[in-house]
């Protein structure tokens, strides 16, 4: 596990020669050893086509490649950091929540709009996800940022979970993701409960929720 949590807002990554770590630009707090930080024009892995894909999908958070030998500390904006270890499965997360991730992980952009039709698009608007999201697959660790602490909630087929779209951070596993609404006449006249939209997650997996409704 290359990421060690130093405290709730700071992680340390061990960097070895030949092993890359990607991190959000400007998120380095300190390092020791011989480490270089290279701006990553492509915004991640893959070739030019991946870059164009990310640009179109608006998932092109500025990343940098961290290489060399040493220890690097990452933290960003005073946000809480949560380390997720992937063992061959897939994590779906917004690119701007990525603090750092292993270079061993495969990064790609996924079209979420196909899930749920028109509601899917509304969901993208409400959650701030847009129609695309970043997926990371493989063996390795991901450090995601959240406002407030992160809670993990398991999803089982018997027990779908409803999540406030603003508190949603990431999810993993075979999860169907749809926006359920409880819009009524009260919402139309501005007397709603403020919880008209919820994200309904069903399937097998895990959803990560932050203890705040503030988006990053």
């Amino acid at each position: 596990m290359p990421f060690t949590k130093l405290n709730g807002k700071l992680i340390e990554a061990q960097v070895f020669p030949g092993q890359k770590v990607f991190s959000q630009r400007g998120a380095m707090i300190a390092y020791s050893g011989q480490v270089t930080f290279t701006p990553n024009m492509m915004g991640g892995q893959g070739g030019v086509m991946s870059m164009i894909g990310r640009r179109i999908a608006n998932e092109d958070t500025p990343l940098m490649t961290v290489e060399g030998q040493g220890r690097v500390m990452f933290g960003h904006g005073g946000h809480n950091v949560h380390v997720i270890d992937l063992t061959g499965d897939t994590l779906y997360v917004e690119a701007d929540r990525l603090l750092a991730f292993d270079g061993t992980l495969q990064q790609s952009t996924m079209f979420m709009g196909s899930q749920g039709g028109v509601m899917g698009m509304v969901r993208g608007q409400v959650t701030g996800q847009g129609l695309f999201t970043t997926q990371l697959t493989g063996q390795g660790s991901v450090a995601v940022m959240a406002h407030g602490g992160v809670i993990e909630l398991p999803i089982t087929p018997q027990q779908p979970i409803h999540v406030d779209p603003q508190a949603y951070v990431a999810h993993r596993g075979q999860v169907q993701n749809k926006l359920s609404s409880a819009l009524g006449w009260r919402d139309m006249i501005g007397r709603g409960s403020g919880e008209a939209f919820q994200l309904e997650l069903s399937g097998h997996g895990m959803v990560y929720v932050q203890a705040s409704e503030e988006k990053l």
């Binding site: 405290n7 700071l10 380095m28 300190a30 020791s32 500390m73 933290g75 005073g78």
Partner: peptide
Amino acid sequence: NGPVHFVEPPIRVDPQA
């Protein structure tokens, strides 16, 4: 801004941190 962390030199740090 966030807990303080102590490190020993030699180290290079972000000026803002």
